Amino acid sequence: MQKQLVGEIFWLRAVACLSVVVIHTFNFGYDFFPGERSSLTDLIRMAFLFSTPTFVFISEFLNAKSYSSSVPDGFLKKRVRILLPPYIILGFVYPLADHTYLEGVHSYAGAMGAYIFAVAKNLIFADYVAYFILIIIQFHILHILLSKFLLRMSPAVVLTVSFIINAGYLMFFNLVEPSSALPLHGYIWGKGYWIPFPGWIFYFALGYYCGKNYDALKMKVEKYRILVLLAPILFYSLSAVLQQSLLLEGTSKRFDMLLYTTSMIFLIICLSSRVKTVPRIIYLISNYSFSIFLLHLLFFYTLKPLPHMSMLGYQIYIFIIGVAGAILVSFLMNKLPFGKFIVGNVQNRANSTRRSGPSILVANNGKEISQPK
């Protein structure tokens, strides 16, 4: 039986992954070149904020496309076995690269104590880039619990309710000031609210119904392609106005990003569906996207601006090294039996994604499951 990969997912994963890296180049650029930060650079950075939510969509899309009503034995175990070890191991590694926790520390004992505290923050409070792993694990669990329910429910009802829940949750943390009487209020309003699933539930629901009804989705996207092409401009403009008027933080965990992210997902699907074969560079970045997501900041922490370098030059410099370095490290580590448990698993799939013959359902563990039309 012929096999066919979902080519649009390669594009979504690659574009979202590179967009995450771009966002972080702005963050580091602002640190070293604060004088070059402006409203314009903030608006440019905002255009890439769809990236992290898109990974929630992709995760559930793949789950629903392969297992819309039930999951096989060992479904969760296989995924946790791949996802959790990098979260734990890199929780120890990242403080070795990011030394900000050592500010004001002048002794070996103090440095060791600060390091242990930094590791504890990473692992207990998900206070580093791998926080996203905990979000994905939550949605694997929710897929097991809710897939049969979602199968029976009206997509319009579920999407509407999940949007209201998601938007209301984010609006609360975006617009309501934290109470100093609440324990850990600084952490909760700063990063803590990112982790629980209500902050992403709409992307989960959207991913489920898009994955389950993907052929119908592509027909709708093609039918309303003019609207699909214009929607990102409209919703980006709305987000730009809200960012300036409400002084919202430049983060993807904003209520207005629900609309903008959705429009960008459909735009990428619309454009990439017209490409008959996925280019090798997109295939490569998609395949290494998890490792790039996890590792690129390790390079950023060690790369300082070169003499006479502008912020843009520095951003390009760390972007190239961060992406290439993450791919190289992941490639070499995956040659080792235990490497995937440190930097993430890299799947080896067919280089071509021709759109003919039976469809292929690409599961999150990289297995290809053929299914007749």
Score class of each variant (00 low, 15 high):
residue 266 F to C: 07
residue 307 P to F: 13
residue 324 A to P: 02
residue 243 Q to F: 11
residue 228 V to R: 01
residue 315 Q to N: 09
residue 283 Y to G: 07
residue 342 I to A: 05
residue 256 D to N: 13
residue 227 L to Y: 14
residue 248 L to Q: 11
residue 332 L to E: 04
residue 309 M to H: 09
residue 261 T to W: 02
residue 278 V to D: 00
residue 280 R to H: 14
residue 335 K to H: 14
residue 260 Y to S: 00
residue 342 I to L: 15
residue 258 L to A: 04
residue 246 L to D: 10
residue 338 F to N: 10
residue 236 Y to D: 02
residue 230 L to I: 15
residue 266 F to E: 00
residue 232 P to Q: 12
residue 279 P to G: 09
residue 325 G to W: 04
residue 344 G to C: 09
residue 274 R to H: 15
residue 275 V to R: 01
residue 254 R to A: 07
residue 342 I to W: 02
residue 229 L to G: 03
residue 323 V to R: 07
residue 343 V to W: 01
residue 227 L to F: 14
residue 307 P to S: 13
residue 259 L to T: 04
residue 229 L to H: 04
residue 239 S to M: 10
residue 305 P to H: 11
residue 321 I to N: 02
residue 260 Y to I: 09
residue 342 I to D: 04
residue 270 C to F: 11
residue 333 M to S: 13
residue 326 A to L: 05
residue 251 T to S: 15
residue 249 E to A: 12
residue 258 L to M: 14
residue 247 L to G: 07
residue 227 L to H: 10
residue 331 F to A: 12
residue 333 M to T: 06
residue 265 I to R: 00
residue 256 D to I: 03
residue 303 L to H: 06
residue 338 F to R: 13
residue 290 F to G: 01
residue 291 S to F: 04
residue 312 L to P: 00
residue 288 Y to T: 04
residue 241 V to Y: 15
residue 281 I to R: 06
residue 298 L to C: 09
residue 259 L to F: 15
residue 304 K to E: 13
residue 261 T to I: 09
residue 231 A to K: 02
residue 332 L to Y: 08
residue 306 L to Q: 15
residue 301 Y to D: 13
residue 312 L to S: 12
residue 259 L to G: 11
residue 338 F to M: 12
residue 313 G to F: 11
residue 280 R to I: 12
residue 317 Y to A: 04
residue 317 Y to Q: 09
residue 290 F to A: 03
